[in-house]
Simulated assay, not measured.
Amino acid sequence: MKSPMKILIYSAKDFEIPFLEKANKNVYQIKYIPERLTSKTAMMALGFDVISIFSADDGTSKTLELLKEFGIKHITLRSAGYDNIHLKTAKKLGIKVANTPDYSPNAIAEHAIALLLALNRKLMISNQQFLNYNFSLSNLIGFDLYNKTVGIIGTGRIGKIIATILVGFGCKVIATDTNEDSCFAKKNNIQYVSLEDLCQKSDVIMLSVPLNSTTNYMINTALIKLMKREVYIINIARGAIVKTLDLIEALKWDRIAAYAADVYEYEHNLFFYNHSNDKPDDSLLQQLIDLPNVLMTPHQAFATTEALTNIAETTFYNIDCWQQNKVSKNELFYN
């Protein structure tokens, strides 16, 4: 009898393992390790056929070459984004790669709205004051979202849901995207504008684009200068969409009003881990933490029961397809 295929799960988190176990249905032999995939931990994949990685794992050319030497033939990502893996190298090495694109755009979109509401209505400050029996409203003034102009940069699956929710709030929604969806825009009374126009007109800016060579450091000093001083920026995309140093300077000098994000430019090896007893030496992160007009969460937007179920099921769907020599609908093809 043929032994079950062996799969190594990198960056395995305690909260996701039960979902992965259920989705596996005892078909494959799984090993879960908390370590991130790097060039130093690639050797842990020796003896396995397939690995699964997360958004913080390192899929650079050097790491992929090592994985090839250790016998890895397939990589499935437990994330929609795949900017952390060098696809051209994977193709050259003959390593198949698939991602998890549709696990729950609603989870991400709803978290974006939660960040906006919490930031605008000063919920974190209010709760801290309340715990100290301070019931003053002096520091808790926000604004109505109704009738405000919200600019959405990126109208993919997540961006569209964000737009729909904001239309429900009575916001005027404008958007920019390299692939405009005119039918969606017409149905929801959304106007596509240039990036520059969006920055000039928006009271709130939502970032919902993938990280690539075009969007890397998209939000920088030059673009911030076009924005209203009262603007709120909400980032649920990737940390490096924003040039953190430029952002901090803008916040310090009141060039923009506030920033909320579920991502951070240098979050690798920080987010998803408890560093309360070994505080990281990261001056940029510390400055963001110290700023009163910043609200950060640790890449938790995807953390819903529905999303984790879909991620686990899609992970094993991708593996099943590879094992059966079928093309997964999530396989990442390369130019």
Results as ranks from 00 to 15, higher is better:
1 M>Y: 14
6 K>E: 05
15 F>Q: 11
15 F>S: 06
19 F>N: 06
22 K>F: 10
30 I>G: 12
33 I>C: 01
36 R>E: 12
45 A>Y: 07
69 E>A: 11
81 G>F: 03
87 L>K: 05
92 K>F: 09
96 K>L: 13
104 S>T: 08
107 A>K: 07
108 I>Y: 10
111 H>P: 01
111 H>G: 09
113 I>C: 03
116 L>T: 12
117 L>C: 02
118 A>F: 04
121 R>E: 03
129 Q>M: 09
135 F>H: 02
140 L>H: 03
144 D>K: 12
148 K>D: 02
150 V>W: 11
157 R>M: 06
158 I>R: 03
158 I>F: 04
160 K>Q: 09
167 V>E: 13
172 K>M: 08
175 A>I: 07
179 N>F: 15
181 D>S: 01
183 C>I: 13
187 K>V: 10
190 I>Q: 03
191 Q>Y: 12
192 Y>G: 02
197 D>K: 13
207 L>F: 06
208 S>D: 00
220 N>R: 08
229 R>S: 13
233 I>C: 06
234 I>N: 01
236 I>M: 06
237 A>E: 00
238 R>F: 07
244 T>W: 08
245 L>M: 07
251 L>F: 00
254 D>G: 02
258 A>Q: 04
260 A>L: 05
267 E>F: 04
268 H>V: 14
271 F>K: 06
285 L>C: 07
288 L>S: 09
292 P>G: 00
298 P>D: 11
310 N>W: 03
310 N>F: 05
315 T>H: 03
323 Q>K: 13
323 Q>R: 15
323 Q>A: 15
327 V>A: 13
334 Y>C: 15
